[in-house]
Amino acid sequence: MDRKEIKGIIEGILYIWGESLSIDSMAEILELSKDEVKNIIEDMKNEFNYNRRGLQIIQIKDAYQLSTRVEHYDYIKKLITPKNNKGLSNAALETLSIISYKQPITRVEIESIRGVKCDKSINTLIEKGLVEEKGRLDRTGKPIIYGTTNNFLKHFGLRDINDLPKLKELKDIDLLDENNTK
């Protein structure tokens, strides 16, 4: 099988699968090494970008997925019937931020940082698939620990959790904003 045919197969597999597909699964399907599959996917990503195709291949941890380009959103949204899909409240966004930076974390730890109860926010984030239970701590009461999901990474365009902006960078932006408003 030549490289061009392998690229076509990968594109078809990613299209049909719809969700992110691990490099291990693709290597097994194609009967190739993981490194070879990664190299081919990197070539495909470069070709898609160079040719300004309507699709792109995104990476989420060590998995890949076909996606439309962000810059085409305004055109694509014209086709989509709006769902009554509310965004996140400020409370839910604060809770999500704490979980994403401090994970794994318990509800009590989140509440101690926020200073208010956060059961409802956590449930909302779980319902939206942005947060999940990651297990329980081995201490009194066996509290649930929470962390973000792959859906969180996909939603915010992150390859992995290490792609989050560093807290110092965010503080620097806040300071710049404060200086500009004075």
Rank of each mutant, 00 (worst) to 15 (best):
F156P: 00
S89F: 07
K134W: 08
A27D: 02
E94M: 14
A91L: 15
D35E: 07
N84H: 13
I144E: 07
Q59M: 07
V108N: 13
L167V: 06
F48E: 01
P104H: 06
D177T: 10
A27N: 06
K154H: 00
I145F: 08
Q103W: 05
G87C: 00
K45T: 06
Y101E: 01
L164I: 00
G115P: 00
E111F: 01
T124L: 08
M44R: 01
E111P: 00
V108H: 12
R139E: 15
L167M: 13
T148E: 04
I110D: 11
L130W: 03
I60A: 03
G141Y: 03
S33V: 05
Y50C: 07
S97E: 04
A91T: 10
I16V: 13
M44V: 00
A27H: 05
N39F: 03
T95E: 08
D62C: 06
D174V: 09
E109S: 14
M44C: 02
V108A: 14
I99T: 02
I113S: 07
G135K: 04
N85I: 14
L153C: 03
D62R: 11
L96R: 08
K166V: 04
F152G: 04
I23H: 04
K134A: 10
L130M: 10
E109Q: 15
I122F: 03
S33C: 09
I144M: 10
R3T: 12
L170I: 13
N150I: 03
E5M: 11
I58N: 03
E133R: 11
D43H: 07
I60V: 09
R114V: 00
I80M: 14
D74I: 07
L175K: 12
S20F: 02
P143N: 11
D74E: 14
